[in-house]
Design a protein around this nucleic acid. Structure first.
Lengths: 211, 211
DNA sequence: GTTGAAATTAGTACGAA
DNA sequence: TTCGTACTAATTTCAAC
């Protein structure tokens, strides 16, 4: 069950190597599609919905888990119901060469749901869930601002979460758009004035005033 | 199994009304804690880990699901392994009174994993997963910029996702910090110069130049 | 990679505390 | 309400094809 990670498990057609380990074919993707929508489905039902035998479903299920394509299964929780109805994004400017410290501090903040290093004006974006606005304020001033690695922060509140899809798959691309594959067409008639990519250097220079 | 949504299910202690429907006590939170880390655990094992009977675990499990505290179960997928290794944040400025159209268009974009309405300089932030940088570019120019509701966009790439916790719970607050509850202490010695909250009006006025 | 049977486990219903 | 048990249904595992 673990040698699959090295050799690949598929046998039908030419799937095309996507990841490093396991070769994901159409059946693998279909399994992932089902599992992201219903993580508690039994492997038997999964086999039925995908259209393969149970033994095959078990094999592939295990392979996906062993390979790491499926990292874990989790429950989506309604934050409002659990009392953490306020969500905020905190954009952080980090002092260079203090990243290790910043990451270490983050690990000690359980109210942080998500943290990503970004290009652009800031260096990182963290998402927090709190009971009220005052707690966000306290979090930013008491905890974040006291970290030496943090040079500056910018807080934005989330008014509404329009959609959260449980993880996008490559097969999603061919769903809503029957004829057109984005990256393979010339941009053509694009209102370029609307777009603006933010490079890392640009924003960082603009922020050098505060320290 | 559904009257619990109105009356509450707990019996020990004074849980304190958190959500609208179900009253969540310590046991409920413990169940959620287990389930967010292992969404496929059997209810029997869940009962064991939480320290309640099987029957009770089934009742509470169903109640949490019926109440909506648990929205769904999902599989966390490794995007790099599935071929969508590029993640980008696109900050969108939306023309007022065209929100309905904007939301409708979003629903037709399966590559969008997350979208939230925010305060601050922009109106919305969307997170997309793509195979390469060119696809992000095409997405922004071909699809987003062509939506009349979209006034302007600003794209930022995610270089690294430091952490993604499967949903924060109120009980997390009392984990890493033995003595100190943020929102209940005076801010005290805060380097205020580090912090900056961005209001909605401020940023919108600054962006009025483009149209 | 598939099918079918045995062993195990999950889910339900009920009475007692 | 919660617990414990008995009962039923389903799933998982293992075998042979």
């Amino acid at each position: 069950m673990s040698e699959i990670s090295r050799n690949g498990a598929s046998g039908s057609g030419q799937p095309g190597r996507i990841g490093i380990g396991l070769e994901l074919d159409a059946v693998h993707l279909k399994i992932l599609e089902v599992l992201r929508e219903n993580g508690r489905i039994s492997v038997s039902s999964l086999a039925e919905r995908v259209g393969i035998s149970r033994a095959n479903a078990y094999t592939r299920f295990e392979a996906l888990r062993a390979d790491g394509a499926i990292k874990r299964f989790t429950a989506e929780i309604d934050h409002v119901r659990t009392g953490l109805g306020i969500t905020a994004l905190i954009f952080v400017t980090v002092r260079q060469q203090m990243w290790k410290q910043f990451r270490a501090e983050l690990a000690r903040m359980p109210e942080v749901e998500y943290c990503a290093i970004t290009t652009g004006q800031h260096d990182a974006m963290i998402q927090v869930r709190m009971a009220d606005v005052a707690e966000v304020h306290a979090m930013v001033t008491d905890r974040l601002a006291n970290i030496p690695a943090v040079k500056a922060t910018e807080t934005v509140f989330i008014l509404d979460e329009v959609l959260r899809r449980p993880y996008v798959l490559p097969s999603d691309r061919d769903k809503a758009r029957p004829a057109r594959r984005a990256a393979q067409e010339a941009p053509g008639d694009v209102p370029l004035g609307k777009m603006r990519f933010v490079g890392a250097a640009e924003g960082r220079a603009a922020l050098r005033k505060d320290g």
